[in-house]
Nucleic acid binder design. Structure first.
Lengths: 253, 253
DNA sequence: CCCAGATTATTGGTCAAACCATTGACTGAT
DNA sequence: ATCAGTCAATGGTTTGACCAATAATCTGGG
């Protein structure tokens, strides 16, 4: 992985790995990425202006811009033009994770079934953690989210959006940011698929609302085992309901 | 999210979202990304040379290069210099997923506990799917991987690497590429952490090997329920074992 | 004194034209 | 046939200029 120093001696060891010749923009991007990820450059802190980076690094402006473009693509900096513009550092966020997971799903032609299986894997543990780790604000948010899904019963598009938000709220309550980022990414994709497929008839929506209520109760009571079990049953049921639509590979956008 | 067409009429509707002014390199990157993800540009197919893209798009070479740099960062193209070099399309892969998950974990200071919890969430379902969906080659690979872990008992670094490979093999057998990419990314991070912490003493390694054998048996017998249960117990036990090291935030590299 | 509009400075965005570095194919001498 | 040299095509890098967006600053009228 690392660059290898070419040996100057004539008859030296014959075992040399492939040597990777780093590009100048990669070197700069690596340096800045390291500093952003380890906090040397704090979240929200401004990076030097492009022309300053040129002076500091000795690279051309084109190379500096390519380095910044890399970091932008990774979601580690936000750049705005204009006076007092420039690049500011950002910690990696759920949005970038969701973006990449979406590309993965679309590019690999991941089936809706695989997506639902993944949600089935993550959801129950998430509910258990939420029951164990929630605080009062998490509970308030969850009860509110639960109510909003119920209130949106009649308006299917709003209902679907609120449904995604409900799962997201459970994820927040789990206080596990990695699992949360996964479920946010997946729920978003399931939402897009379900919005297309239009499978959520009145009966399904009623069952979902009942399940949400029972899961929220378990989380409120901090009963991790019940929350896990109920979420598992809920997600399994949803997968069953969507089984008719599940055969075909997932198409997005 | 999407760009908004500015209205030409004078007294038009007052509700306008923020309008995002797209950059030229983003437009080109979007076009190429779409074609790569939907297969119009097949995996392994060559993109036009930079100078050809300049002619085709009317953009400058700098903008074309920034567009390609975006796609490189997303893992959607590989670029090599030299004659017959150029950019070739690649489908999004586990490596890019692992890279981004790693950045997320490091940048957000995700704890080792959260990482282990995520593996606890995903692992059991993965084992169940492996038991259900495995074919003969998957089973051969799993038995081989199981043996390799056992053979590496004495050499801890090799043992740890083979351990990661074992989990990866189970993931492959599940035939769920999304779950697989998650577990590959996470196992890699757990491996790095465990390599640092040096917690795998003889007793732990013995227990792990026994658990692997029992799980492999269940997958061989296509007993999904047993595989899921045993994997859950296995990962819970591992988390318990690592609990002493789990308090501190995860430090990588 | 205050405020609206014009001005200006700073920043990223884009373009153009070179030249360098790497790589593989081609060619010709041996 | 083989091998070394040459050549062509490609990405990598630099330079310098100008455009576009934005907010601080100035200026003149009230």
């Amino acid at each position: 992985m690392l660059p290898v120093e070419p040996s100057t001696a004539a008859g030296s060891a014959p075992s040399l790995g492939l040597i990777y010749v780093p590009k100048s923009c990669d070197l700069l991007a690596d340096r800045l990425r390291t500093q952003i990820l380890d906090g040397t450059i704090a979240d929200g802190a401004a990076l030097p202006a492009e022309r300053d980076l040129v002076l500091q690094t000795g690279l051309s402006r084109g190379s500096v811009r390519e380095a910044l473009r890399i970091l932008q693509t990774e979601g580690l900096v936000m750049t705005r033009p204009g006076r007092l513009g420039g690049s500011v550092a950002r910690r990696p966020g759920d949005d970038a994770m969701a973006r990449y997971v979406g590309m993965f799903v679309q590019g690999r032609g991941i089936s809706l079934l695989s997506l639902l299986q993944t949600r089935e894997a993550i959801g129950p543990k998430l509910a258990a953690l939420a029951a164990r780790n929630r605080n009062d604000e998490d509970l308030d948010a969850l009860l509110d989210a639960t109510r909003r899904v119920e209130d949106a019963f009649a308006d299917v598009p709003v209902y679907l959006a609120e449904n995604v938000n409900w799962h997201r709220t459970v994820a927040v309550a789990s206080h596990n940011e990695l699992l949360k980022s996964f479920v946010v990414a997946i729920s978003d994709l399931v939402y897009k698929a379900s919005a297309i497929e239009n499978f959520a008839n009145d009966d399904v929506r009623n069952l979902v609302i009942k399940a949400h209520r029972r899961i929220a109760d378990a989380i409120a009571a901090q009963d991790a085992e019940a929350a896990e079990r109920r979420m598992a049953r809920h997600l399994t049921a949803i997968t069953q309901q969507m089984q008719a639509f599940v055969q075909t590979p997932l198409v997005l956008r």
